[in-house]
Design a protein around this nucleic acid. Structure first.
Lengths: 123, 123
DNA sequence: TAGAGTCACTTACAAAGAGTAAGTGACTAC
DNA sequence: GTAGTCACTTACTCTTTGTAAGTGACTCTA
């Protein structure tokens, strides 16, 4: 009777959040210790300011990322860190990385530049 | 010296393939045993013919899905199945599902319809 | 202290992708 | 032989992304 058996909106939301363009690499950079806007950007070739700012705001709204402006002394530059929710994505990221490494296409060891799935669709 | 330390194009490609709109639910439906076009579509509310056809072709090209037209006798209706590469995504899907279940927002137990991350951005 | 540089964004516009809706051809049931 | 289902396509519109050029707050240098 339930036509949509096996479908789970919570899963759907999660996979699109994680998989949304640039979000995977952004979360990975944050897990790797990057915590400033420019630092994240410089670690991800192809990612622009506009999209990074947008993605960080979305991730913040989803409770994955936290933005803090250390009003201490020196700089007013904001810092981005993962929340507990964000840190708990580590195993997800790890399992994707493992799958990717296992099925890495033959010729993509070091020369491969970050061609996306979308890019490969353009002829 | 390497500005893009920690960045991995193989990971980037993988996370965008898995997270590309509708791909997560499609792979999950296939893992759950759906093998015909209409069956996959009916399990995923909101997914249209156009996008399902497109996504299946992309997944086929990526070697995740296999399309077979059983030329046997009865029907000419094609069947879709996961390849070995596709089946090996099971742990990835599982870890996303676990994360999603753990961080499911309070009011989304059963009433939540499949609102995507994108939808929540529209005001 | 004037001017150049860096940082974290924002805005404007064109191109690509996704949603909506209405076909199409092959087959099947009545 | 006509109506219905199935697996797609095509045409059109709206949303998201990419590209490029600002902007204001701050810092460093002469």
């Amino acid at each position: 009777m339930d036509e949509t058996q096996g479908y789970c909106p919570v899963f759907h939301r999660a996979v699109e959040l994680i998989g949304r363009r640039w979000n995977g690499p952004i979360i990975r950079a944050l897990l790797d210790g990057a915590d400033r806007f420019g630092e994240i950007r410089s670690r991800i070739p192809g990612l622009t300011d506009r999209l990074l700012a947008q993605r960080l705001r979305e991730l913040e709204r989803e409770g994955v990322v936290e933005r803090a402006c250390p009003s201490s002394s020196a700089t007013t530059v904001p810092h981005y860190t993962l929340t507990t929710k964000g840190h708990s994505l580590a195993p997800v990221i790890e399992s994707i990385a493992q799958w990717a490494a296992a099925w890495e296409p033959p010729g993509s060891t070091s020369s491969a530049q970050g061609r996306s799935v979308a890019d490969s669709r353009r002829r």
